[in-house]
Design a protein around this nucleic acid. Structure first.
Length: 719
DNA sequence: GAGGGTCTTATTTTT
DNA sequence: TAAGACCCTC
């Protein structure tokens, strides 16, 4: 293919490797040039991991590998997007056909959708065929799946219910176990087989297995598959139908996996199965940054790579270009305390930026901590810093309460990153429910949701009852009601008043039909969106407007505006999907797979200070980082001995986000569930200080460091 | 069918 | 504290 529209950089395929990789350091280059067989790169924080990954892809292209034979897999859409962009920058149109995506999206599209005739899928009752009616199995949102799981539990036998009640087992606890089990690649049967008579938790597991079985059925009834199941089913396909794995291996000659330390068993099994034929698997990660154990990630997979891939070539990238020397010294001190590492895990500071010495500050209470941190932020912004250059990180959300209050009080713009995902917002879910109810067959749940938020004169409860009693689904029920006599009651002014069904339901049903036909016959997507907008205005908007007018919030208007804009975004995306020729089912899958993009101006975005959990900060970097709430209860955020190592890694991730400035704080007293709790400093701080010998600071007065942790703070600090 | 009151329960979370 | 689930009344 020729692309003559604009001048391209010299084609990667024609470049001299020296020139192509001139910007790499020796270790990076070595990893990049090792293209064949299993390769693992231990890439510490800020050592150019993504750069190495993209250069390696370019090197493959240079050696004549076709782009579509390269597969790059990451964890988040953000990371996948970043890699795609960097590939485009570097390789131009040559890189375009490299398949780069998240585990879930690539496995769904390449494996499940790629082999709809698979026997395994047939046996499981999963239809991946793209039919005209959009009846292909769709990805369930988190919301839907936990709803179905709740339903499954509610349908358990009375005995089971009593046991659950008696033992005080929460749904959450079951859900957690379910995630962990499926991260290992187990399905219900595999899981049941692991239950041993007489085991402590045998009853718990057996009850889970029963609910799990029912849950899977419910998902199928709704023609859906949840996130975890995408992986479990794909792994099963590859196991039971080895020809699929072989074919995929031929298609994807080179596989690259990002964030390998956060891989779980199923993900590992799937990728190993595809790579089995050629063994060209490239794994990048940092065992010191594995922080997703709670959802089944297993750092053990990273540490034992040599056993699974004998002859794997190991490379280490020790040069950190991100952080100042002091920050590296502090981070290294913490790394030293980590028991399980492939190497000593010490980074080399290469950053040339002027950086300050990190500090650890002790406060009497969380209010003082928040006030002083925000004052510090204000000073930095006054001195010319952009809000977006400053991040405040915390172990859990409850730690940010005081901080948010102070940010508002001191009038500093901020954004809470990953606060609520776009698709979790009520109005967005309403809009999507409306779309699905209109365009998808068998969208029962969506129908109920639409009824709930439209006041059409038919309640979701009544519709549910009709479904139970007479097996009439929402769509048919509405059709029937629209056809019923249109008038009711006594004459008013010489005419019979119109029934609700005439004024509300009939137009809705008419528009629904019209829209379905528009899409079916491929009419102008812009027109479709317009009609959708009209539908929303009439049926859904009034409820939001009402809520806004009643709200006591000072910014209710702004909230309403934002909600309206969000819904517009959903419809725009739908239109865009149609324009791109996607099927309705594809568009809906993307709704569940993709994250939002903000419609705020770049300038506004840059002015906002970033508040986020440490987990959300992974992979990011900021000139100035505050880590707050480093007290003994929040960090480690668990009392379980076995989980302490991961907690340490979490703090390590947080510290290594900082480029020039790192300020770590905690307070001796803070609110916990509305109660004031006395806490001490995180033990991790001592692990750091015992190496760095940088003295802790105390606010507002200077106390004797040896006197720390006595708990007698919070009074008499005016000094 | 809607909206208001009470009760309950508290990591981390992406897909 | 504070958000969500659930129930109950108008």
């Amino acid at each position: 293919m020729f692309d003559e529209a604009w001048p391209l950089p010299p084609a990667v395929t024609e470049m001299d490797p020296e020139a192509l990789h001139a910007s790499l350091n020796d270790e990076q280059r070595a990893a990049v040039m090792a293209v064949d067989g299993p390769v693992m790169v231990v890439a510490g924080a800020g050592t150019g991991k993504t750069k190495t990954l993209t250069h390696r892809a370019a090197e493959l292209l240079r050696r004549g590998v076709h782009a579509s034979n390269i597969l790059v897999v990451t964890f988040t859409n953000d990371a996948a997007g970043e890699i795609r962009n960097r590939l485009l920058d570097m390789c131009g149109s040559e890189g375009e056909h490299i398949v780069a995506g998240t585990f879930h999206s690539t496995i769904f599209s390449q494996i499940l959708k790629g082999y709809p005739e698979s026997k395994t899928l047939k046996t499981l009752g999963i239809n991946m065929e793209d039919g005209p009616d959009g009846d292909r199995c769709a990805i369930l949102s988190q919301n839907d799946s936990s709803k179905y799981l709740r339903q499954a539990f509610s349908e358990l036998s009375e005995d089971d219910q009593i046991q659950i009640e008696h033992n005080d087992w929460s749904q959450k606890r079951f859900e957690k176990e379910l995630t962990i089990a499926r991260a290992k690649g187990l399905d219900v049967l595999d899981y049941s087989a692991t239950i041993r008579q007489g085991q402590d938790d045998a009853l718990f597991k057996r009850i889970l297995a029963r609910a799990w079985g029912r849950y899977t059925d419910i998902c199928r009834e709704h023609n859906g598959i949840d996130f975890d199941d995408i992986l479990v089913v794909a792994a099963k396909m590859l196991r039971q139908e080895p020809h699929i794995a072989r074919e995929l291996g031929e298609r994807f000659q080179y596989i690259m996996l990002d964030e390998y330390q956060d891989t779980n068993r199923v993900q590992m099994n799937i990728m190993d199965a595809i790579a089995e034929g050629h063994g060209n698997i490239f794994m990048v990660g940092d065992e010191k940054q594995g922080i997703y154990g709670f959802r089944g990630a297993d750092t053990h997979i990273f540490l034992t790579v040599r056993q699974r891939h004998p002859g794997v070539r190991l490379f280490e990238l020790p040069r950190n270009y991100r952080s100042g020397a002091g920050i590296i010294r502090h981070s290294n001190a913490l790394a030293k305390a980590m028991p399980q590492k492939l190497s000593d895990g010490q980074l080399l500071a290469e950053s040339k930026a002027a950086a300050r010495e990190p500090s650890v500050v002790d406060f009497a209470d969380a209010e003082a901590e928040a006030r002083v941190v925000v004052e510090g932020i204000r000073k930095r912004i006054a001195a010319g810093a952009q809000g977006a250059e400053i991040a405040v990180l915390y172990r859990n959300r409850s730690l940010k309460m005081q901080l948010e209050r102070e940010m508002i009080r001191q009038n500093i713009p901020f954004m809470v990153v990953g606060d609520k995902s776009f698709y979790e917002r009520a109005e967005v879910r309403d809009a999507i429910a409306l779309l699905r109810f209109i365009f998808k067959n068998r969208a029962q749940e969506d129908g109920y949701r639409v009824l709930k938020c439209t006041r059409m004169g038919l309640s979701d409860e009544r519709a549910k009852k009709q479904y139970m009693d007479r097996n009439i689904d929402v769509a048919r029920l509405l059709d029937q009601m629209a056809e019923e006599r249109l008038t009711q009651g006594k004459k008013v002014d010489g005419a019979y008043p119109l029934k609700d069904s005439a004024t509300k339901i009939a137009p809705f049903v008419g528009l629904r039909e019209a829209l379905r036909e528009c899409v079916h016959y491929g009419d102008d997507p812009a027109f479709v969106r317009e009609v959708l907008g009209a539908l929303w205005d009439r049926y859904l908007r009034p409820k939001l407007a009402l809520a806004a007018s009643r709200s006591k919030e000072p910014n209710a208007d702004a909230v309403f505006e934002a909600q309206v804009a969000n819904v517009a975004t959903v419809f725009e995306r739908f239109e865009q999907g149609l324009k791109n020729g996607q099927t309705v089912a594809d568009i809906f899958d993307n709704f569940t797979l993709m994250e939002q993009d903000s419609n705020e101006s770049e300038r506004e975005r840059m002015a906002r200070v970033r508040l986020m959990t440490i987990h959300a900060s992974k992979g990011l970097e900021f000139p100035t980082v505050f880590i707050i709430g480093l007290d003994s209860k929040a960090m480690p955020g668990t009392e379980q001995e076995a989980l302490i190592d991961e907690e340490r890694r979490i703090l390590y991730v947080a510290m290594t986000r900082a480029q020039n400035e790192l300020i770590m704080t905690y307070s001796n007293s803070r609110l916990e569930f509305g109660q004031r709790a006395q806490v001490g400093a995180s033990p991790f701080l001592e692990e750091i200080e015992s190496v760095t010998r940088v003295p802790r600071r105390y606010y507002p007065h200077h106390r004797d460091p040896g006197n720390n942790g006595g708990g007698n703070h919070g009074r008499g600090l005016t000094n």
